[in-house]
Design a protein around this nucleic acid. Structure first.
Lengths: 287, 287
DNA sequence: AGACCTTACGGCCGGCGTAACAATA
DNA sequence: TATTGTTACGCCGGCCGTAAGGTCT
């Protein structure tokens, strides 16, 4: 296979050469560029010569001890920057694409139903990663159609015909009242009855937030971002808060609290896992 | 300088690697790609492995005896094509830019004044190339402002104030009539008198064409593209044609023809070399 | 003297080719 | 058997670094 060995005209221009050119353009001096790239100055000298040969056009104005880009060189360096940027984007794009093929993005209207489904995915779809977030319901729906999410979890059953829907779990909301609260011995409460009472609330609870603020417009909600802080506050304060059957099951009943069911129909929701009908097969292991 | 020698994580991805990937994508098989690039198959095998390492993402689905791009690979190959295209455009752009810096584009309204000016450029501006073309006058003016042309040659003196103008040579038009033509003994002729006579004409004569067709609307002009064919036809036919003092000076009088001056004022033009005022200094060697 | 670029020289590593092997059709 | 991909192995060239030289501030 030596019959082509001596093709001297080869376009040997490589990205590393351009990187050196770009570095020289940035640093203004070969020495500085060499240091930046952890190379020796003579290496840079030779690469620049090589580039000039490959472009077959002068790129520099050479004084005895000074090297500068001429107009050609400035243009070349500028374009080299662009090309390097695009080369870097190339691998990033491919990596991101690969990642997207291996991760399922789930959008949920509330935190609790995420727990079950992400566990299921980890168990059923080995090698699949999941990324999940809690968002407003309309954002979830548009995100589903734009493939931002492969699966979304809604607190109601949507009617669109291009969606594949599967009923998931239910969640029922309760008040967790201090034992000496005036309603502590009630068997059930409407949110309206509690309206006006200040309550502890965990942030990032999705659509529940809207439920609370609409049904209890006169209450002030002391929002905690951190789960740990929230739990601490429950222990140390006498403010009522919300719990659900799921949190009760997972974390147990907060000490010194009485659990009172909420009677509003909005306090009991059934979650539905939803994906595009066209992705049904691909996602059936989850749904 | 060995303190960084062993950085194995280097982004060694080079254009040649991507070229091999692109070739594989085009050819469908390593062997074919290897042949196309004048490389051996094992080389391709190893490059593909290297690329997979550099992307840190699988790019292929490997059977025992078959290598195919997976989805990642297809994306990578597609983007590789694009990047290679852009790399090629990079050098072409720089080369074109360099060329544009070393060539003066001249637009002229007629062929004759070009002769003198291009000779002057070749003599006065060593290392400068010239490209010239003949165009309509309005195209010349817009082209000058858009830097399509550095210098244009007009048959009149423009009035714009952002232009630098230098009077160039003059050209006077004559009829070259067969010796037995009815006007052969005239001392001068108006074009109107010749209107209706069929004439030989050289194509690509710029604004002269418009002069002829407006002043002699009833004549038919037998247009020749090739100078050689035109000269042959003059010898062998009895059709009248145009000559100018410049062609007479350069090529002499056609045999068997009588030269009769044209009396219309349009038959004597003074050419003006025009450039943008802002380029005056840069072009003063020419102007 | 210090900063910079260039040239000369030598070593080394990485990429390439050959050869041999394995698997498929 | 012919084609294709992979592995093993050795060579060779190109790239890099060190050293030395020249020029300018």
């Amino acid at each position: 296979m030596y019959w082509n060995s001596k093709k001297k005209e080869a376009d040997k221009m490589e990205l590393f050469d351009l990187e050196q050119l770009a570095a020289f353009s940035d640093c203004g001096t070969l020495s500085a560029a060499a240091e930046k790239l952890h190379l020796s100055q003579p290496t840079l000298t030779k690469t620049m010569k090589r580039l000039e040969e490959e472009f077959r056009v002068p790129l520099f104005v050479r004084s005895k001890n000074k090297l500068e880009l001429n107009e050609n060189g400035k243009l070349a360096a500028e374009r080299a920057h662009k090309l390097l940027q695009e080369a870097s984007e190339l691998v990033n794009t491919v990596r991101a694409f690969d990642r997207s093929r291996h991760t399922i993005s789930i959008g949920a209207c509330a935190p609790m139903p995420l727990l079950g489904i992400t566990q299921n995915i980890a168990r059923l779809c080995k090698g699949m990663a999941t990324s999940s977030e809690i968002q407003d319901i309309d954002i979830l729906l548009t995100g589903l159609r734009e493939n931002v999410y492969q699966v979304i979890i809604l607190p109601y059953k949507p009617q669109e015909h291009d969606l594949y829907i599967k009923e998931a779990e239910t969640e029922s909301l309760f008040f967790a009242l201090p034992e000496n609260h005036r309603f502590a011995d009630k068997k059930g409460l409407y949110m309206e009855e509690m309206d006006g009472e200040n309550m502890l609330l965990l942030s990032n609870i999705g659509f529940w937030h809207k439920v609370h603020t609409t049904k209890m417009p006169h209450s002030r909600f002391l929002v905690q971002t951190e789960r740990f802080d929230f739990d601490e506050l429950i222990q140390s304060s006498i403010l009522p808060c919300f719990v659900s059957d799921i949190t009760l099951r997972l974390a147990g009943k907060p000490k010194n609290r009485v659990i009172v069911p909420i009677l509003d129909k909005e306090a009991v929701v059934t979650y539905y896992s939803v994906c595009l009908l066209q992705n049904k097969e691909q996602l059936k292991c989850i749904m």
